[in-house]
Design a protein around this nucleic acid. Structure first.
Lengths: 331, 331
DNA sequence: ACGCGGTCTGCACGGCTGTGCAGCAAACAG
DNA sequence: CTGTTTGCTGCACAGCCGTGCAGACCGCGT
């Protein structure tokens, strides 16, 4: 019996347990004198209300699940951090479910969240199976999906299509002709979306786009894809990378293995604007995504859903802004 | 009443609530037939045990707090991810408290954790005030501190002193004579420890060490410190950076602003071996810290403390291994 | 002095669960 | 066939908390 209960505080303060409960309940009616006594006793014993029991009563727990695979990498790290911060500020308790790609692992995590009566779940990555959504639905658990167009849940989307089109148009306007795009084979929805939109926009203007894929959408992926692009076929003079990490890998290969110049020989545009994009070695032109803004929208959707659970699914868009740096400038 | 209760399942299955409870309790005695009936009813209603209520009864919640400031940056991102993964594998529920540096913010977070009867708290960074430890102690909440020598808690320490000494000795053995170290003004304990140990080791061998500080221990910090080192005074030919991010900033300034060569003019050693250290642009010689290993030790300490709460405080050391890359090689 | 209104307080209940205990039926041994 | 063991089951209680309700008490007006 490690924790102090309200009973013990009541005994020490010489009041009933109800008085203790009321002292710690917002807006309950307690006389200042007893309130004082209770607080003193609580302080002496080191008492804290048991939020678990409170949650049992109210059928809610203030827990919010944050589901992500590889939350330490690239933009996702920043998104995870922004989200947890926003949740804490809101008074929620962020539970970070760092899960592998396996379907069963994901379902196990969800069962854990439902078991603990998590109020909502935010999904940052991965492609949850249909049963995931169904389970959440049946338990009335609000779901917010970020960066994936999932009709069965509230969602926050980056303007992937708009940005990718802008990338293509800007390349073309600057006189670049041999376009390429780098995506990844293990296609995250947003990565795939950017790749497809870029190709579509370029083709609409009458250009052919070479496509290369890394294994994952990370630095090594950029390395692999760039090697493929430059060791055979027509050498590109402008590459749109579906995220910054891919761009870093590609840039390093272009400069160091093929001794070409960025931006003179090859222009590069990335996506996300992670802090590394501003590092002197890269100085990458990229689309800025504000993690705090995305997190704020997600929390807003959560609030709204909790107030009217039966509203139709909503979708918030956050439009990324291009940031020009040395790897590609307009003129 | 969004969630299904055991009562409802019992009614549907035509058994008592106890039978339902036992069905979902490990090692309880239930007849296979009733077990079957209960499972079927539970499946039909979408029932999940309320772990909150279970926790109230057992006075434990499976929640484990993970407290970190800026968990998105550098090595800490990897440590956070490794820790949450290890905790989940252990069956715990990691609550990521992403807090600012403020003392009151930290205390609020801790109150939240205690209120929810978190079983333990792992602290990754920041310098919690004494009251933090006292509060944890009084509530019998196990505390594990990583990378900080805090006698009132179990702790996992990197071999900062050993590694820093090795850095100094290796520089000297390779014929480097004008040594410098880069730390930060907002000194994290481990950053400060590395700086001090390096200086001590070099001085023991009769060398003077120039010291430069960034504002924080990140990329910008490295930039600022390197500018200071190279714009005045005797130019160093070997710099030990208290972490990799500082090294990246320093390396970029050395090469691009002062047009010097790494490693010919200046050798660099970093600390942590974050993935970026292996990127072609940096190829940084550094001390490898394995986040998974550190996380595993932390979880081990947690387990041990939970089994015998009265054991004396323990301290686990994980010794970093130097990884040689291009920024400094032995010969 | 007496009645009345208002403010607190304590009781008891409700919200979920795990589990000791006693009882019951079935199985088994003699 | 009967006595005993065994295996399940249901009851009731414990573990925390918030809150409706009725009653106590205090202050005040007449």
């Amino acid at each position: 019996m490690r924790f102090v209960s309200a009973e013990q505080v009541a005994k020490l303060a010489g009041v009933s347990r109800s008085a203790v409960s009321r002292t710690f309940t917002e807006g309950a009616s307690v006389a200042p004198a007893t309130r004082e006594k209770v607080l003193k006793a609580a302080e002496e014993l080191g008492y804290h209300v048991n939020d678990l029991a409170r949650g049992v009563l109210a059928n809610q727990s203030r827990l919010v699940g944050v589901v992500a695979t590889k939350p330490e990498i690239g933009f996702r790290a920043h998104l995870t951090a922004a989200l947890t911060k926003a949740l804490i500020r809101r008074g929620s308790i962020p539970v970070l479910i760092n899960t592998g790609e396996t379907e069963e692992e994901l379902l196990a995590a969800q069962k854990m969240l439902i078991g603990h009566r998590a109020e909502a779940t935010v999904i940052l990555s991965g492609s949850p199976p249909a049963s995931f959504f169904e389970l959440a639905q049946r338990n009335g658990q609000p779901l917010v999906v970020i960066g994936r167009s999932e009709p069965d849940a509230d969602r926050v989307l980056a303007g992937n299509a708009e940005a990718s089109r802008e990338a293509a148009d800007t390349f073309i306007a600057a006189g670049r002709r041999r376009l390429a795009v780098i995506g990844s084979r293990s296609a995250t929805p947003s990565i795939a979306e950017r790749e497809i939109a870029f190709v579509a926009a370029a083709e609409a203007s009458g250009f052919v786009v070479r496509i290369a894929h890394g294994r994952d959408s990370d630095y090594d992926g950029g390395i692999i894809a760039a090697r493929e692009l430059f060791s055979e076929g027509e050498r590109p003079d402008a590459i749109f990378c579906a995220n910054d990490l891919l761009a870093f890998g590609a840039m390093d290969v272009i400069r160091q293995e093929f001794s070409l110049s960025v931006p003179d020989d090859v222009a590069l545009i990335g996506f996300d604007d992670v802090p590394e994009a501003a590092w002197l070695s890269y100085d990458l032109t990229t689309f800025r995504q504000d993690p705090a803004a995305i997190a704020a929208r997600a929390v807003m959707l959560l609030d709204r859903r909790q107030q009217n659970p039966d509203e139709p699914r909503a979708c918030e868009r956050v439009i990324p802004q291009i940031v020009f740096r040395k790897s590609f400038s307009r003129s």
